[in-house]
Simulated assay, not measured.
Amino acid sequence: MTGMAQATIGDSEFDRDTAVTPREPGVHDAELPTGWSIGGAVNGGYLLALLGRGLGAHLPHPDPFTVTAHYLSVTRPGPAVIRTETVRTGRALSTGQASLVQTGADGRETERIRVLAAYGDLGSLSDDVRTTAKPPAMPPYEHCLGKEHGDSSHPLAEIAARLDIRLDPATAGWAVGEPGGRGEMRAWFGLADGRPLDPLALLLAVDALPPATFEMGLTGWVPTVELTAHIRCRPAPGPVRVAVTTRNLAGGYLEEDAEVWDSEDRLVAQSRQLAVAPRH
């Protein structure tokens, strides 16, 4: 979808920027670049992928099946430490937990995010599918709106350079000052350097789109409190379609449900998060 040479899994910006360096058993060092930030705060999907990589290096099974994250404080670009622990190891699944901490100028550690996850082998799953779920009705990739239709001063611009997001025009009215009033956001999603998507990149995809509240006319940011992602299978080659909906904004909080569909019309990932509603 891009004219540039295609990056590969293991040799891409995403892989370099989610790399973890072992310090001792269960402890990894990481450097969080500014490029995955939104308004100075590191994106929650990127953090999910980063901790997912740390757990993948720690657990005996290769693929994330379910990952639940609690976002405890704002993560900033810079050095961080990831601590991992095995909770249980079984034949089909292994469960672990991970936390990311950063050290302040006063030398005190602050925990930013804590994750509990189950890992397995997506390649060993049955191909039996019985579902009523359907992929989102969206225009083709080339008929959707890319970065050239956005505002380079928008806070999404920091992370947007790493991503190839093509918004469905039906849910992009907010980008031209005409929100549609519905809690919906749909887009094609890929990585800007053409790296193929894998389970770790799907953890990024479930929290990489603009919030559905933008299309409701609420332009403030939406901090995630808790997010649970389910990875259902490895995606087929090509960009995926991501559909995000918000049905209930009440008491200052809202939910966002995301579905990710691959080029073979398979539901490859799902997520739900609780987030703080914007104030304007």
Rank of each mutant, 00 (worst) to 15 (best):
T171A: 10
L55C: 10
M1C: 14
T103N: 04
V225D: 10
I159C: 09
I231L: 11
V74G: 01
V27C: 00
D15G: 13
K147V: 11
V240Q: 12
A98F: 04
V101N: 04
D168E: 04
A250E: 13
A41P: 10
H28S: 03
E178F: 07
L203V: 02
C144E: 03
R182A: 12
C233Q: 15
A161I: 12
V115R: 01
A5L: 15
E111W: 05
L72C: 00
F65D: 07
L122S: 05
M185H: 08
R266P: 08
A269T: 07
V240C: 12
R186Y: 02
L156F: 13
V115P: 00
G56W: 01
E256F: 04
P237S: 05
D15N: 06
K147M: 11
E109Y: 01
T219C: 09
R162V: 08
M4W: 15
A160Y: 05
P79I: 00
G3H: 14
G194N: 11
D121T: 02
K147H: 09
L32Q: 00
D262P: 06
E24L: 01
V20Y: 00
A208N: 03
G123P: 05
M1Y: 08
L227Y: 03
A187R: 03
Q273T: 15
G220L: 15
P235W: 04
H154N: 14
I231P: 06
A243L: 14
D17C: 07
P223L: 05
A133P: 02
D15Y: 11
L145R: 11
H61P: 13
D193S: 05
A118K: 07
V276T: 12
A5N: 12
I231S: 05
T89F: 02
W261E: 03
A201R: 06
A275T: 07
Q102N: 00
G78V: 05
V27E: 01
G78C: 01
R266L: 10
L209E: 04
R23T: 02
P169H: 02
E264M: 05
V206C: 08
A137S: 09
P278C: 09
P77I: 00
D164H: 05
H70L: 08
L59A: 05
D127W: 02
A212N: 11
L156H: 07
A229M: 09
A269L: 14
S153M: 08
V81Q: 05
S152V: 14
